[in-house]
Design a protein around this nucleic acid. Structure first.
Length: 528
RNA sequence: GUCCCCUUCGUCUAGCCUGGCCCAGGACACCGCCCUUUCACGGCGGCGACACCGGUUCAAAUCCGGUAGGGGACGCCA
């Protein structure tokens, strides 16, 4: 991502791509000659060596690619939105483009500052940094108004006095009769223009024919114009509506590629008409498939946690969530593990799939476990601390938390789980797993505890290997099997059987505390 | 209802453009074995899919047509 400027020729040099990038157009739009398969982009030139989308590392360019993530602040940042943000961010970073954050708060009723904060918090936690913004649509109302007036003046938009109630009634009637519930055009041709009545402004959509666009992910999509009605671009309170604002913003912010959820495909033809009416260049569109719940229905609260921040609080690492999310809909051969750098390096819209995917916590867990295993203990310790604090545990007068983490890294899928497993290091057992203890004779337990106390007190073993050796000695000297020694000691130290290796516990806990706990266990057993 | 989109193991996916290397590969989960002082990690193996029907072809997961199923949209929400 170094060179910030590049000439067009840099885009055009990529001969090795020639054989697989380009494919003859079967039904090319006017003026277009070929379609590049990988990027599904139309090209109007003649050379077979041109492809400005399919660049690999050899052709690093600082492109004029501009993408945006445009959430509406009516809730937290959910995993679906996060993935859309990620795809935008990755493409921008991969191509050296610009990533813009825009808050779509035109709905004054439902937008909240809390939501804005939550979204920004989620973005920051994931490390999805933006180059421009955040911009707030609510600050640009005059701009939208100006363009509305432009359309009205040009006869491309008109005032509509139909009330919400009337429209509602008509819509329900149409639905009931099996017709498509579109605006009937009552005010389109300026029938009655009552004075001092509230009105909305509608876009005068072209009738007849069709509107289509080439989606980078789904290919060409065409809508008959008769399906599209005259959408409202300005409410009766004078505020602009979503479909109008996106167009103005994307155009004025010079967005080149709109990457968004595919629940927006139906809006796209209307927006394309708006671009054309306004004489703006139409950007490229890439509609990414939805993320569904286990029941294949749109992901929602009833499927459990959907908020990115909730995943943080459940003890997931941001890189794990990112890795999971990037593989939802995108792939790079059989690869599963991607560092941020690798994602940036490999990501491209051309490898994004067309079909919806189901959110699967099991796989997220696996990835999270992977990243926990490979993370720096110091960092993990810092991240783990709040999870311990929540449990009322102070680490100040116990073992070093990073040392504790080291013994737990291979044993936890989430930080929550790790915190749970770390508790015993800071709280001597208040009771023991009786069932586990019952597997050993009382005499054996007392003998084992005595032997271990004696050995440990006399030893200066300070690392796992030395302590392990010590226990092997105890075994051979008394003809005990490791299972007869390790398990009782583990129970004495942790209270149960789900714990790290004996050597790890002893070294982490320290000789003194270890002996203290075994003595307590010995007393407990002796008193039975 | 209408329009748009989608359809490979339970799940995420590779392969599909350029048909044969695919009686379909990888990963998660699950099951079994091994390792082992518990819990885990790890290793090995197993189970398991081209939605369906036609067509084209010597040959189809791959090309064409249809059917079914799922999702999305149809708002003075975004």
């Amino acid at each position: 991502m170094s060179a910030r400027k590049t000439s067009m020729t840099a885009f055009l040099l990529h001969s090795s791509m020639a054989e697989h990038c380009f494919v003859k157009a079967k039904a090319a739009p006017a003026g277009q000659k070929m379609l590049f398969w990988r990027c599904r982009e139309w090209y109007s030139g003649d050379s077979k060596n041109h492809c400005r989308m399919c660049q690999t590392k050899g052709v690093t360019t600082m492109s004029d690619l501009r993408v945006r993530f445009a959430p509406s602040p009516t809730g937290y940042l959910h995993v679906g939105g996060a993935r859309t943000a990620l795809f935008n961010w990755l493409l921008a970073r991969h191509r050296g483009g610009t990533f813009i954050l825009r808050i779509e708060d035109t709905d004054v009723e439902r937008s909240t500052q809390e939501s804005v904060d939550a979204i920004l918090e989620g973005m920051k936690w994931l490390g999805l940094d933006w180059d421009e913004g955040p911009f707030f649509q609510s600050e640009y109302f005059p701009l939208y108004k100006e363009y509305v007036q432009k359309l009205v003046a040009a006869g491309k938009a008109y005032k509509c006095y139909c009330t919400a109630e009337e429209l509602d009634t008509k819509r329900n009637l149409a639905m009931a009769e099996g017709r498509k519930p579109k605006y009937d055009g009552t005010c389109r041709d300026g029938a009655v223009q009552p004075e001092n009545q509230p009105y909305v402004i509608r876009f005068r959509a072209p009738q007849g024919g069709a509107t289509s666009f080439d989606d980078l992910i789904k290919g060409t999509i065409t809508f008959p114009n008769d399906e599209l009605d005259d959408l409202i671009i300005q409410r009766s309170d004078g505020t602009p509506t979503y479909n109008f604002c996106v167009v103005i913003d994307d155009a004025t912010m010079q967005i080149t590629t709109v990457i968004r959820g595919d629940d927006h495909v139906n809006n796209t033809p209307r927006q394309v008409q708006l671009y054309e009416a306004l004489d703006f260049p139409v950007p490229q569109f890439a509609h990414v498939p939805m993320i569904l719940g286990a029941d294949k229905a749109r992901l929602s609260k009833r499927h459990g946690a959907t908020s990115v921040i909730a995943y943080r609080d459940m003890g997931y690492l941001p890189e794990a969530l990112l890795n999971y999310l990037v593989r939802l809909g995108w792939s790079n051969g059989d690869d599963e593990i991607f560092s941020i750098e690798e994602m940036i390096d490999k990501f491209d819209i051309s490898n994004v799939g067309r079909s919806a995917s189901v959110f699967n916590t099991e796989k997220l867990n696996w990835l999270n476990a992977h990243y926990i295993k490979n993370s720096d203990p110091q960092r993990l310790a810092a991240l783990l601390l709040p999870h311990l604090t929540t449990r009322g545990v102070s680490t100040l007068d116990g073992p070093d938390l990073a040392a504790v983490v080291k013994t737990l890294q291979e044993r936890a899928q989430t930080l929550e789980e790790m915190a749970e497993r770390a508790l015993f290091y800071y709280r001597a057992p208040s009771g023991y797993d009786e069932a586990a203890l019952a597997k050993f004779d009382k005499e054996l337990l007392l003998a084992v505890f005595a032997a271990v106390i004696e050995k440990l007190s006399a030893s200066s073993a300070a690392d796992v290997a030395a302590v392990d050796a010590l226990f092997k000695e105890i075994c051979s000297e008394n003809s005990w099997k490791m299972g007869q020694v390790g398990q009782p000691v583990r129970i004495a130290l942790s209270g149960g059987t789900h714990a790290p290796g004996i050597g790890e516990i002893v070294v982490t806990l320290g000789g003194e505390e270890t002996v203290r706990r075994i003595r307590a266990a010995r007393e407990f057993v002796a008193g039975k």
